[in-house]
Design a protein around this nucleic acid. Structure first.
Lengths: 190, 190
DNA sequence: AATTACATGTAACGTGTTACATGATTCG
DNA sequence: CGAATCATGTAACACGTTACATGTAATT
């Protein structure tokens, strides 16, 4: 059981449809849990069947109808139970790092291009999370919000995501510099 | 295909047995790819069957015999092909962050304990990676090593892992401070 | 007119985790 | 004498990804 709790957490403050949930995953939740929209629909079905969330149909005009979900008491209990259990170590999987690990055996040019692309996507992500955080805290300062605001949970995880992407950015730039330098040295030598 | 390339990358510089590979994953590779030892044995079998690595039996006295593996030319080609392909965005999954996301709805005491545990494991990890990096660079300075050393790939990914764990550490401490503060405020109010 | 956003699902397949299974040797 | 290290695997199950499948409405 895994995605299950991420979904429950995402539905705690807001009643969401599968589609909106997917959006929420792309933004906030993605900082610590990835899921394809399709997987979310499957999970929502399961959670409802297990009585941890309950759905209700919302009729819309000029938009397809949708089903929105809220966490039930049983769902809240499940989340509390989950929270009390020991946290498994975090899982990371990153293609790009696999490639960099092989740096001494593969073409550096390609790596530099891929690293530069990652720099760009990190920048975008930083921008996005920045907006999310601004929205959450409104016109309060961060200090003030963290002290008295509602929804510090999402804010804190947002901060982690932000730091992660900044780490990505800095590391990618460093890696590009190193690989470029080595390439220049090698060329001079030849 | 996923773990497959991480294994190939890990076997590039060194001939390793399944057991040693598992160790290598716990240390260096774990910074960007997680795998259970069991999974590695399965993957090694598959890779050998596909001709991407080749194994040879090493007879040992006073230790069980083992099979060590090297990457074949086909394996190297496969890695190069993989490297040239676009990198998928990195995947993160972290139980602890799911819990913190729910911070406004669950017991903070538990969260603080879990965060403190994570601080400890981050410290351990930082220690471990530090040693790994020192081993890799020998008596050279980092600058010097990155410029002229062999095996900069593993070194660079090590640096990323280090920064990641330091980010973890700082963030956990911040989160603990925030949650503690809020709890104190709430108690004073009551 | 085309693209993006809204809206929801199923089926096949690939991947990963956990539990099960075994056994020798070394270190504290 | 018990725990950790060395050493390798299988089987059942859980989880996740990709491809397939469909259709309306708003925006550019």
């Amino acid at each position: 059981m895994a995605l299950r709790h991420a979904v429950l957490a995402a539905l705690l403050d807001e009643e969401l449809s599968g589609y909106q949930l997917a959006k929420s995953f792309r933004l906030g939740v993605a900082n610590f849990w990835h899921a394809q929209p399709q997987q979310l629909y499957v999970e929502l079905t399961r959670l409802e069947k297990d009585g941890l969330i309950s759905g209700r149909e919302v009729v819309q005009e000029s938009r397809p109808n949708k089903r929105v979900f809220t966490v039930t008491d049983a769902g809240r209990a499940e989340l509390e139970y989950f929270t009390a259990a020991v946290a498994k170590p975090s899982v990371i999987r990153d293609d790009l790092l696999v490639k960099v690990y092989s740096a001494d055996h593969v073409d550096s040019d390609i790596l530099i291009v891929l690293l530069a692309e990652r720099v760009e996507s990190a920048r975008d992500k930083i921008e996005l999370i920045g907006e999310l955080l601004r929205t959450l805290r409104g016109d309060r300062t961060e200090e003030e919000f963290l002290r008295r605001g509602e929804r510090v949970g999402p804010y804190l995880t947002g901060l982690r995501g932000l730091a992660f992407e900044q780490g990505n950015l800095e590391w990618c730039e460093r890696a590009i510099a190193v690989l470029t330098q080595r390439q220049a040295d090698r060329d001079n030598h030849a």
